[in-house]
Write a protein that binds this DNA or RNA. Structure first.
Lengths: 169, 169
DNA sequence: GCATTATACTTGCACATTGCAATTATTTGT
DNA sequence: ACAAATAATTGCAATGTGCAAGTATAATGC
């Protein structure tokens, strides 16, 4: 044999056309400027920003609520809250009825920071949406809702089940 | 004053409705099972998998081509290639004409591994697409193409320009 | 033609992030 | 009251990332 390198098969997955990668690419590219903004300006981490966004709309949240709302594990949530508290952007109090739960609330300066970051976030979103027609926005919105649901299921079942499913259609 | 906590403003950015976050969420959730699969089965990192996918469709690629194709910086590419070589999934040769350039090619066993991972990737994609109608798929495809372009521009201009633009509409 | 500069990539090291075990604090069940 | 369960936190090891410096090669200037 003259060649140890393998030839491409024609039905091969193409990264640049693979839906999850395309979604990731858009998300990652717009996340970068936003991330440099809040990290340079406020010294906030990605987890910190997400948690800030959650407590901005939901007062006295506990850690698991926050984790569920922004897809972070309890460790990351705990550390993120710690960072926000250190920066003076959040306060942590024991829960009213059950004191195992934390009651995390945004502070005034946390709200100010959030508003500044959210302004940039909205500007980014506006630029993206400006590329779409009204009907495309509507379609994208409803499609994304279903994709969110399906991706949660995909995540939940794990790769073994996914391969089994693929084998027995 | 009876309250040190800041009230929510009504036009606030809501994380769960913010387009970039929604895209990220779907991408992250489906990436998780895929990542456990290739890391458990082949000991491959995320960068390793992406590079493998690139060299699976583009033979004798050099490091900067790979980096551009899968959004990795040169360091990550170099290390990812190193990992693939160690696993026997890729070979690194000096470029034909200019020997500063690497010519990275996938090996037979690299191709085998890629095909197995790609099978899972395609199964995941199929499950996502099954939730959409034909016309939704078409719309999503063309919308994503434009979003990719716009997000690249957003990334390129940086946050200062984005805020300036928002201030002067 | 030889020294200088530029390019492509790699490596070493410091630093940050993450994952997981163990810990603390609190509540619930018996 | 004591054991088990639950929410959250912390310490530490492993892992990943960013950047400075290094190597190898090619192009440029004199």
């Amino acid at each position: 044999m003259k060649q140890t390198l393998a030839p491409a098969s024609d039905d091969a997955l193409k990264l640049s056309a693979w839906l999850p990668y395309r979604l990731f690419l858009v998300a990652a590219q717009v996340a970068r400027p936003l991330e440099s903004f809040y990290s340079e300006t406020f010294g906030l981490s990605q987890a910190g920003w997400r948690i800030l966004a959650v407590i901005a709309e939901r007062d006295a949240a506990n850690a698991s609520e926050i984790g569920r709302a922004c897809a972070l594990d309890p460790f990351a949530v705990s550390r993120g809250i710690g960072q926000l508290v250190e920066l003076g952007f959040a306060v942590r109090r024991p829960g009213k009825t059950d004191r195992r739960f934390a009651a995390v609330s945004i502070t005034r300066s946390g709200r100010t920071a959030f508003n500044r970051i959210a302004a940039l976030g909205s500007a980014i979103e506006a630029r993206l949406l400006a590329r779409l027609s009204d009907s495309e926005r509507t379609t994208l919105d409803s499609a994304l809702t279903r994709l969110e649901g399906e991706s949660a299921r995909i995540d939940a079942v794990g790769w073994r089940a996914l391969l089994d499913d693929a084998a027995t259609p």
